[in-house]
Amino acid sequence: MLTRRDLVAIAGLMPLAAQAQAAPVALPGYAPAATVTGLIRTWGHGSRDRDILGGLVRDWQAAFARRQPGVRFETTLRGDATAIGGLYTGAADLALMERPPLAIELDGYQPIFGRDPFEVQVATGSLDVTDHAFAPVLLVHRSNPLPRLTLAQLDALFGADRRRGGAALRTWGDLGLTGPWAEQAVRLYSFAITDDTAQFFQRAVMAGSQKWASPLTEFDGADAGRRIAAALAQDRFGLALCGLQFSNPQLKPLALAVQDGGPFVLPARETVRKRRYPLTRAVSIFLDRQPGQPMPPHLREYLAYVLSREGQQAVERDGRYLPLTPELARREREKLA
């Protein structure tokens, strides 16, 4: 993990104090626009084996039901892969997901409804909580003097198509390091390219390309993050796509920037909460809504609650996802009109 000295050495980054846990969000409270009734069926992120985010969803539902006692809930959280299918088969009203729908999921949805599902973001992904849309980080060995990378550089390292432009980057000298580092190849480590984290990286960094540079050492399975970090700790010339929760004292995260001129931002709770860190993820609810038409009142009221002060305070209490900023919550509430 980075020391204070490490952080101060990286120019243009947030001070340490900014990494403190954010205060509760300042949002308007839930004010019902109407008394509503009906059944709300939610499918999506979760697992058959573990209750990943049922506590947060139950909190939302119980608090909403106290205000709208005519609304009932059925909840089936068995994974993102079930969510969009729940919508187009008519089994679900809401699809709760940590990622956008895949092309194959839209191939099932679009022929039935003639459009993409309607998206409302309801939380920000975590900094470092497994199974909670954690922000991917780029780790190097502590002995590596490189402090930062841009997304274009990452695309040129990990991507074969290099859709962000520029030549392939293959050595540490290509990234500006000199001396004994200059001629050393950058050895790449990652989650398996079918993993949700790698799929997010494809969209956010590789501009949707599915062609990864070779050689790439992939790790699969529940302990993939730990094994990536362990391998990198033994390889001073490695660069790993990983999660901060898997890091160890032999490694350090790099600051990232969307543009060449920065700002370069380290992964930290505050930079993720404010979505300043470029690889921050979002948690969304998808539903069917015809363009220009109002959504069913009971769904609109429920989503209004989730985006209210009380709904986002539930996210804060749960402590795994991060609440939306007031500005993001306002933008998402405007979608409900």
Rank of each mutant, 00 (worst) to 15 (best):
M1R: 07
T3L: 04
R5F: 08
A20H: 06
A23L: 15
L27N: 10
Y30P: 13
P32W: 12
P32R: 10
L39D: 13
I40R: 07
W43S: 09
R50N: 11
G55K: 13
Q61S: 06
A62F: 05
A65R: 14
R66K: 14
R72G: 11
R78D: 11
L94P: 09
I104H: 13
Y109P: 10
Y109C: 11
V122T: 12
T124S: 13
G125M: 10
T130S: 12
A135I: 08
P136K: 05
V137Y: 00
R142L: 03
L146G: 01
L146C: 03
L146S: 01
L146F: 03
R148S: 14
L151K: 10
A156V: 04
A160Y: 05
R164P: 08
G166L: 11
T171L: 11
L175M: 07
L175W: 04
G176K: 03
L177C: 07
G179W: 03
P180D: 12
A182T: 05
A185N: 11
T194G: 06
T197L: 09
A204F: 07
V205E: 10
A213E: 08
L216R: 00
E218V: 00
G221E: 01
D223S: 06
R227D: 01
R227H: 07
I228K: 00
L232G: 00
L239F: 00
L239D: 00
L241Y: 00
L241I: 08
C242Y: 00
Q245V: 02
F246V: 08
F246L: 00
Q250M: 00
Q250Y: 00
A257V: 09
V265M: 04
T271L: 02
T271Q: 09
V272Q: 10
K274N: 11
L279Q: 10
T280W: 06
S284T: 11
P296I: 08
L299F: 06
Y302W: 15
A304Y: 01
G311M: 11
Q312T: 14
Q312D: 15
Q313A: 15
T325M: 13
L328R: 13
R331P: 00
R333K: 15
R333V: 15
K335A: 10
K335C: 09
